[in-house]
Amino acid sequence: MASQNISVPKTPINYSIRVDKVGVRARIIRAVRIAAISVVAVIMLIPIAWMSMTAFKSRPDAVAVPPKVSFEPTLEGFVSLIAKTRQLTTEQIAEYEKNPDLNWADRIMLRRGQAIIGVSEYPRRFLNSLIIAGVSTVFSVSLGLLSAYSFSRFSIPGAGDLLFFILSTRMLPPVVVTIPVFLMYRAVGLYDTHIGMIILYTVFNLSFSVWLLKGFLDEIPREYEEAALVDGYTRLQAFRKIVLPQAVTGIAATTVFCLIFAWNEYAFALMLTGDVARTAPPSIPSALGTGGIEWARIAAGSMGFLIPVVIVTFALRKYLLRGVTFGAIRK
């Protein structure tokens, strides 16, 4: 065979090696292109960078005119986010300063004349977000996996219509679904409960997870299972021991997408929770109203909220396209 004589490069060549693409002109065009993209990337990141900077500003720095690019970083925003504080008078400050038991957080707040008197509501909301997003993701991925397996492996009458029906539930404006769900929840006592929100987010993500997982499962050759069935495995054993290990990447990607959707969700949480089960997204804007706009605090809250998502974006970049198009488009 002739192919044996051709030296195969060890690493795949990802860039063009066509002759017309290595000339001077082509190189200049390439440099311009890279520069343009870098500029766009920087522009896209300015808002995020600005918010991260604001999170480390002190209260006067955050609203300085003109906006300050260099400033003395402080954790004031983060501390005021998780702590409930009380304004002190000048004498109280002097007295307070003598107290030897002050920790670093107390000292930060003391600099702006406030004493920490407890924990704010934010940690609780954050915890709510974690619980609701976490538990609902477990449910929607496991239920979605079972249905996706059925759609992928068994012949179901009207499967196409059924799948479309499952997807269509995500095309509605959330407000359309919210009103009746609100009435229903109020009638059965699920309004403003963790269970209610978990059920809602489970269903909200279920359509997505069925579609995405079906795509991943379709790629696993069914011959593997058929061989296992011939060897005496039951269908459930084959599912557990053959399909699941192969679908791990797909399941992981789906899990993270579901987590992010539930994590970011705002409309349902705003309309279907009061105080008990309220998640973090609706409570970040509500911090606006309370006694002047504390931008450092809001920025700190947003940042704590965004960092996990940014990390996940990088981890998921291979699956991003699938995820954001409900698994409809593969590459």
């Binding site: 990337a41 990141l45 604001t54 906006p67 994590w263 997204p281 965004l306 998502v309 974006t313």
Partner: peptide
């Protein structure tokens, strides 16, 4: 670079709305 550009669409819309509010502020935005 592609992944960097993709970050905005993964963020929470309401948080995005909020910190753009700061960015649009006529005095200190």
């Amino acid at each position: 670079l592609t992944t960097l550009i993709l970050i905005p669409m993964m963020l929470s819309p309401v948080v995005v709305g909020l910190f753009w509010k700061l960015i649009f502020n006529p005095a200190y935005g």
